[in-house]
Amino acid sequence: MRFLAQLFPEFAGQLDAMDTLYAQKRLIDEKTYQFICFAVSIKARSKPCVLKHF
């Protein structure tokens, strides 16, 4: 995430805001959330995101 924050600080900030919003609402359990994030990371071919959610 640090690499992403260096290149695209506004985008990284929005990702952090999304994580904060999820933590407040808790519509699904944490494990399911991480599996969804992991799957989306693989689909997007984002190595930093795959590493974060793996």
Score class of each variant (00 low, 15 high):
Met1Ile: 04
Met1Ser: 10
Arg2Glu: 14
Arg2Pro: 00
Arg2Cys: 00
Leu4Lys: 05
Leu4Ile: 15
Leu4Ala: 11
Leu4Tyr: 08
Gln6Trp: 09
Gln6His: 08
Leu7Ile: 10
Phe8Thr: 04
Phe8Asn: 02
Pro9Phe: 06
Pro9Thr: 06
Glu10Asn: 04
Phe11Met: 08
Phe11Ile: 14
Phe11Ala: 11
Phe11Glu: 08
Ala12His: 09
Gly13Asn: 04
Gly13Lys: 02
Gln14Glu: 12
Leu15Ala: 09
Asp16Gln: 13
Asp16Pro: 00
Asp16Met: 10
Ala17Gly: 01
Ala17Leu: 05
Ala17Ile: 00
Met18Glu: 08
Met18Lys: 05
Met18Gln: 07
Met18Pro: 00
Asp19Phe: 04
Thr20Ile: 06
Leu21His: 12
Leu21Tyr: 12
Tyr22Trp: 13
Ala23Phe: 02
Ala23Ser: 15
Ala23Ile: 01
Gln24Phe: 02
Lys25Glu: 13
Lys25Asp: 05
Lys25Gly: 00
Arg26His: 08
Arg26Tyr: 01
Arg26Glu: 12
Leu27Thr: 07
Leu27Val: 05
Leu27Phe: 07
Leu27His: 07
Ile28Val: 15
Asp29Cys: 04
Tyr33His: 10
Tyr33Ile: 01
Tyr33Arg: 15
Gln34Leu: 10
Gln34Arg: 15
Gln34Thr: 07
Phe35Met: 15
Phe35Leu: 15
Ile36Asp: 05
Phe38Cys: 02
Phe38Ala: 12
Ala39Leu: 13
Ala39Gly: 06
Ala39Gln: 14
Val40Asp: 09
Val40Ile: 14
Val40Tyr: 08
Ile42Val: 15
Ile42Gln: 14
Ile42Glu: 14
Lys43Trp: 02
Ser46Asn: 14
Ser46Gly: 08
Lys47Ser: 04
Lys47Leu: 11
Pro48Ile: 02
Cys49Arg: 08
Val50Ser: 04
Val50Met: 15
Leu51Met: 13
Lys52Thr: 12
Lys52Arg: 13
His53Thr: 04
His53Arg: 02
Phe54Glu: 09
Phe54Pro: 00
Phe54Ile: 13
